[in-house]
Structure formats: structure tokens, C-alpha cells
């Protein structure tokens, strides 16, 4: 009794986590003005506000600038290999429902080399929060066009301009079976970034958040028009979705009430060219989750393993002549 009380007290003391409890001893090494810094701060705010125990929090990433994020979090981190953050995160989650698993990935990591995993991760709909840091360029390898780069982008692999139209991560995600949560945020509106991230975390299933992110080094002025003109930002609100603080609402007056279950409208919003939509495009909490569907009905125990092995051996058994087969059960 005393032991459990003291444990309870200890837990109460420990659960008063501050922002600093989620900051690792390594200072972020992103470029000055990189949008990744805003995403990291939003993550740490979320962990503090939700009081997520650092030991129960896992940040998984692939390779790229965005994928350095786990190093800067004081949590369990898994900085994996290029494109494979999602299957690693799925493996982590499959037997560990107690862990809060975040995935940070980039437009090259997720939409190019890891694209197959992206589609299937949406379909599995496991309990993961996925942040696509989309700066529309390869940064870590020094400026190559990515699948989301605008047509005509001059890069080291496209010196005469990128030949193709970009892939739209929002409409692609919305088109996959079992999609359950799709949102878009931008690094230059931190309040909304945080609010969207919080909604994503609270969602049961895979929440996919594309964060448009500025790369001052290689895509310096890509989003200038939108950063300067709040009216070019379309803010999606709903009683079940984002609720805006008055100060945000005052600046970003171009708002649309959007029902997050309205898929046709979500697809139309995803395809906007002139305006950048920010908010929750789609949210269907009723979609079943693969990790729930595949959760074992009973825990793996030595007794269970013995029983099942014996059952299987019985099916293929050969018995000594002396033994009575009918009486040879153990």
C-alpha cells in the first residue's frame, strides 16, 4: 500500500514536464531561418501540454534535413534509413500501443524513395502521427528537385528547370483507402501549426500532416507571396476541427468552414493553386486501425506456446509401436 502510494506520488512529481524536458543536449543544427525549427518547437510544446512521458515517446525519421529532428528531442529516437521511417514506426507500434510514435519525414524521403510505404501506411491506418516536412527541395544533398518541387525549378539536377508538374501530397493521401486524417500547416503560422499537431496527435489512427516549410538556403523566396499576404492563406475551421484564437483570426481573415468528413470538398481544397489551405482537410475517426485489428487476443506466454506447439506436433506425430496412440496425450 505504502509502496504504491509513494509510486503514485513519484509519478505525480515526474509528470510535471517542462519544455526543457523534451530538449536534448544537442542544439539543432538546421540553417538559420529553416522551417524545421518551428516544427521542433511545436512538437516540444505538444509533448509538454499533453505531458507525454519522454520514455514513452518515440520520434522516428528517415534521412534528410527533416529527419534530424529525433536527435533534438529528449525522447526515444530512431533516425533510420532513407525513405523507411514509416515501416520502422509501424514495427515499433505493432506490439507497443503504450508508445506515442511520431514520424518526421521530408518530401524526398516520403514522396520519392519511400513513396510505396507512404501509400501503405495510410491504408494500414496505425496510430501514428506523421509530419511531412515539405520544403519542395532536397536540402541535405544540396539542392536537387524533389517530387513536390514546382515545375521549372532550377536545381543541380534540373539546371534548365524541373520538367514535371509536382506531386500533390494532400490529394495523393486523400485518395488512399482507409485515409483517416489529413491536414496542412505552414511553418510561418506557429499557433496553427501547434493546434493542427495537437489535433493530429489526439486522432486515433494515422494522422498525416503536411507542413509547408521554408528552406532559406535553396528555396529562399518560394513562399514569400503567401507569407506577406495573409489573405492568400485559406484557414479551414469547423466546430469539430480547428478553433482559432482571436489574434490569429484577426490576421487570417480568409477562413472557410469546412466539414472534415466532406471528402469532395477536401479534394478541391487540396488542389488549390493560388491560395494555401491551412487546417484539417479530412478527419474520419471511425476508420479501423491495423494495430488494433492485429492486437493479439491473448498475451504470448510460455504455457500458450507449449500448448500450441503440442497441438501442432500432435497433427504430425509418429508413435512408438508400444504406445497406445489414443492414450498418448500429455
Amino acid at each position: 500500500m505504502t509502496a504504491s502510494m509513494s509510486q503514485c506520488l513519484m509519478q505525480m512529481v515526474q509528470t510535471d514536464y517542462q519544455m526543457s524536458d523534451y530538449q536534448s543536449e544537442i542544439a539543432p543544427r538546421w540553417c538559420a531561418g529553416c522551417g524545421d525549427n518551428a516544427i521542433l518547437t511545436a512538437m516540444q510544446r505538444l509533448c509538454r501540454d499533453e505531458q507525454l512521458p519522454p520514455e514513452k515517446t518515440v520520434c522516428v525519421s528517415g534521412i534528410g534535413c527533416s529527419s534530424r529532428l529525433p536527435h533534438y528531442m529528449n525522447a526515444y529516437g530512431f533516425h533510420g534509413i532513407h525513405g523507411r521511417a514509416l515501416p520502422i514506426a509501424e514495427g515499433i507500434k505493432i506490439r507497443r500501443p503504450d508508445l506515442n510514435v511520431f514520424v518526421t519525414t521530408g518530401d524526398g524521403d516520403n514522396c520519392s524513395i519511400g513513396a510505396a510505404h507512404w501509400l501503405h501506411a495510410i491504408r494500414y491506418n496505425m496510430n501514428l502521427t506523421v509530419l511531412l516536412h515539405d520544403n519542395q527541395v532536397y536540402g541535405l544533398t544540396k539542392k536537387q528537385a524533389s517530387p513536390t518541387s514546382p515545375k521549372g525549378l532550377k536545381s543541380n539536377t534540373t539546371p534548365y528547370g524541373a520538367a514535371l508538374n509536382p506531386l500533390n501530397p494532400l490529394s495523393v493521401t486523400l485518395g488512399v483507402a482507409n485515409v483517416s486524417f489529413v491536414a496542412q500547416a505552414v511553418d510561418w503560422i506557429p499557433d496553427l501549426l501547434y493546434e493542427i499537431l495537437r489535433k493530429a496527435h489526439q486522432h486515433r489512427g494515422l494522422s498525416f500532416v503536411r507542413v509547408l516549410q521554408r528552406c532559406p538556403e535553396f528555396m529562399g523566396h518560394r513562399f514569400d507571396d503567401w507569407v506577406r499576404d495573409p489573405m492568400k492563406m485559406r484557414i479551414l475551421t469547423h466546430s469539430d476541427g480547428l478553433r482559432l484564437k482571436p489574434e490569429v483570426s484577426r490576421v487570417y481573415k480568409n477562413q472557410e468552414t469546412h466539414d472534415p468528413l466532406d471528402m469532395p470538398r477536401a479534394l478541391a481544397i487540396a488542389s488549390m493553386q493560388e491560395e494555401i489551405p491551412v487546417g484539417i482537410l479530412y478527419n474520419d475517426p471511425s476508420v479501423p486501425c491495423y494495430d488494433d485489428l492485429r492486437a493479439g487476443e491473448r498475451p504470448n506466454t510460455p504455457a500458450l506456446v507449449k500448448t500450441v506447439l503440442d497441438e501442432e506436433f500432435d497433427k504430425v506425430g509418429i508413435w512408438p509401436d508400444s504406445a497406445d496412440p489414443a492414450g498418448s496425450t500429455e
Binding site: 515501416p87 509501424e90 514495427g91 505493432i94 501503405h120 493479439g296 500450441v308
Partner: peptide, 29 residues
Amino acid sequence: IFEKVGCVVHQAEDEISAATFAIGASYAG
């Protein structure tokens, strides 16, 4: 038989994800 002992066979979308999924599961348990 694996589910009878509370375990999972995951048919992944490809060989790479099968390996990385297993690595994730190993890492976490």
C-alpha cells in the same frame, strides 16, 4: 498458428518494409 500465441505475421508492402518493420518491432521489444 502465430495468432494463437498472441503474435503477428505482417505481410508488408515489399521486402524492404518487411525488414524495416521487423527492425522497428525488434527495437521496441
